[in-house]
């Protein structure tokens, strides 16, 4: 069976979603050909195919026109697992982990430092490439709770796919466990693991 998907002009993750739907409709082995207009979509589709064990090849048909062909076999893996990620400018992420260990940025004046930290977190929302994870511990834990001036920005970052994690021990220490306003609670093992596996760790 053969299906063609036209994803020209579609932004990520639409080409991947359309292609997955076409593969479902095959309901068995077959070929799905997807037309897209940018190389990032080609990369996303190729990664999805490899993850699912499909055969995949792609070619450039012309300026801003690419064809990705997937061969779905009998033994290909089920399609449910895995999220669609979009490594493109404007919604992209890298392997940077940002560590916030204080309410303030720098030393000298806490009032200025608090304004600087708020500014820093706002600036993250304006980056083309967002960090993968933000870790909050010690005084930094006060930024992820209800009433924090940075909460709105952190919720925006979380909505873009940035993982927001706050040290549970720290929330408990400050009596803020019930006030967590964004992201999840984590422990020192996770913090150590995420910092260790990061491409780079940024500590403002």
């Amino acid at each position: 069976m053969f299906k063609q998907v036209n994803a020209m002009g579609d932004a990520c993750p639409t080409p991947v979603i359309k292609t997955k739907n076409a593969i479902k409709e095959l309901n068995g082995p077959g070929t799905v050909e997807t037309l897209v207009d940018n190389p990032i979509s080609v990369q996303n589709l190729t990664r999805m195919a490899i993850n699912h064990g499909y055969g995949v090849k792609s070619e450039k048909l012309g300026d801003n026109q690419f064809r990705v062909v997937m061969e779905i076999g009998d033994d290909s893996k089920a399609q449910e697992e895995g999220e669609v990620t979009c490594p493109v400018p404007g919604g992209s992420q890298n392997d940077t982990v940002v560590v916030i260990s204080s309410e303030t940025m720098g030393t000298g004046s806490d009032e200025l430092g608090a304004a600087l930290m708020k500014s820093y977190i706002f600036s993250l929302t304006q980056l083309e490439t967002l960090p993968r994870t933000m870790l909050f511990y010690n005084g930094g834990a006060k930024l992820t709770v209800q009433g924090s001036a940075a909460l709105e920005d952190l919720m925006s970052l979380e909505a873009q796919g940035v993982e927001i994690l706050t040290c549970g021990t720290c929330l408990n220490h400050f009596g803020l466990t019930e006030q967590l306003g964004v992201g999840g609670v984590t422990n020192m093992y996770d913090i150590a693991e995420r910092m260790g596996s990061a491409g780079r760790v940024v500590r403002p």
Partner: peptide, 10 residues
């Protein structure tokens, strides 16, 4: 209670 917030100058 006026609208807005402090940000770094664009």
């Amino acid at each position: 209670h006026l609208p807005g917030r402090l940000i770094p100058v664009p």
